[in-house]
Each structure stands twice: as C-alpha cells, then as structure tokens.
C-alpha cells in the first residue's frame, strides 16, 4: 500500500510503500529535501519531524534521537515506515552537511561547485 509523503518546507511530494522508509522512497523517486546518509539509523543526517500521519519506526541511534525527540516524532527518516499519508519538516541534518570546518568537509564554495556543476 502506497502513502503520500509531503515535505512541508518545499511542498515536495512522493509516494512511499509501507515496506520502504521515507528516506529510501524519496531517493528512489528522484526527489530531494531530506539529506541522505547511512540509511541505517546511525549517522543522524536524515532527521525530520513528522508533523502529521501514522507511521512505524525501527531502532535508531540514541546519540541523534533522544527519548524526548521520539516522544515528539523527531526521528530519522531512514527508520520510518508510513501507515498513512505523512507530512514532515526537515531538521538539522542539512545544516550539518553543509557547515564548514577544519577537515575535509566541502566548504560553501565547494558546495556551490557541486550543486552548480562548475
């Protein structure tokens, strides 16, 4: 059974089956919006807040999702399986992925090159 997923910030919509995670369905359907990381509940980059709709979830890292987060449906999209139409907001992962720092993270200039194909 397929359900509709809506990313609130962008209005992006896609279909997601009950056996696939919100994240995998987004990537499969060529949509964007939720950062894609390890897809195993470990790295935390795909954190979202489910603002509406029923879902089931699998175990995910407590380092990235506190008990308080769980109680408020702030979860990792790679571990969430819809049981009805779902709407969500993207949380901090996106910022983490583009932040600049020491080390090998792509800086903003590099990010623009990546996105702009220069």
């Amino acid at each position: 059974m397929q359900h509709q997923v809506t990313i609130e910030e962008t209005g992006e919509q896609y279909r997601c089956g009950e056996q696939e995670s919100l994240l995998v369905a987004m990537a499969r359907s060529g949509r964007r919006g939720i950062p894609v990381g390890c897809r195993g509940g470990g790295c935390g980059v795909c954190k979202v807040e489910v603002t509406g709709g029923a879902f089931e979830k699998r175990v995910m890292s407590r380092e990235h999702v506190s008990a308080d987060d769980l109680a408020c449906d702030r979860v990792l999209a790679c571990r969430v399986f819809p049981r009805g139409d779902v709407s969500l907001k993207v949380l901090g992962g996106m910022h983490k992925a583009v932040c600049t720092s020491a080390g090998l993270r792509p800086g903003l200039q590099t990010k623009q090159k990546l996105n702009g194909g220069v």
Binding site: V36, G37, C38, G42, C43, V45, S61, K96, A97, L104, R105, P106, T110, K111, L114
Partner: peptide, 12 residues
C-alpha cells in the same frame, strides 16, 4: 575527480 559530500561528512 570530484568530492562526494556523504563520504566527507557522514560518520558514526
């Protein structure tokens, strides 16, 4: 000859 963002930023 390119960077891969996930490779550089995703860790556990």
């Amino acid at each position: 000859r390119k960077l891969h963002e996930t490779f550089l930023t995703v860790v556990t």
